[in-house]
Amino acid sequence: MIAQREEMRTLALVEGRYDEVAAIYDDRLVYTHSTGARDDKATTLGRLMEGTLRYEVIDHDLDHIEVVGDTALVTGRLRATVVVAGGRREIESSTSMVWTRPRQGGAWIVLIFHSSPAPSKESR
């Protein structure tokens, strides 16, 4: 279920369906970008809606999902094409996410997203 929700989130980001993205983000969201910049839910959605942050392509391969009660710890590899303040960037990063279900049996939502630059091929 987490993998399906993540696919919904990334597709909604690329297609600009930010109301769907908002529904997948917890109100307490902490979103750490690969640059180290950190946003909350309001700032993240604001940047998306203003167009100062736009995702053109997202390929997020989840390599581990560990569910503990109503919390899921997720790691993966992200490749994306992003437009930030008018400049296009190619991103390759390692990701960690914390998903939660606020109500028993409810939909999984993102509480924490953290992205770090992927290690170079030389250091792998």
Rank of each mutant, 00 (worst) to 15 (best):
M1F: 07
A3M: 10
A3V: 11
M8Q: 15
M8L: 13
A12Q: 03
A12F: 01
V14A: 04
G16N: 10
D19Q: 08
D19H: 11
A22T: 04
A23N: 14
D27I: 05
L29E: 02
V30W: 01
V30E: 13
Y31P: 02
A37N: 09
R38E: 14
R38K: 14
D40N: 15
D40H: 04
T44V: 14
L45T: 10
T52R: 15
T52H: 12
T52P: 04
Y55F: 11
D59H: 12
D59C: 09
H60N: 14
D61C: 05
D61K: 15
V67Q: 07
G69H: 07
V74D: 00
T75I: 13
R77C: 06
L78M: 11
T81A: 01
V83D: 03
V83F: 02
G87V: 11
R88S: 12
R88F: 02
R89F: 10
I91D: 05
E92M: 05
S93L: 07
S93E: 02
S94G: 12
V98F: 00
P102V: 10
R103C: 00
Q104Y: 06
G106S: 12
L111W: 04
S115P: 06
S116I: 01
S116P: 03
A118H: 01
A118N: 03
A118Q: 07
P119C: 08
S120H: 09
R124E: 07
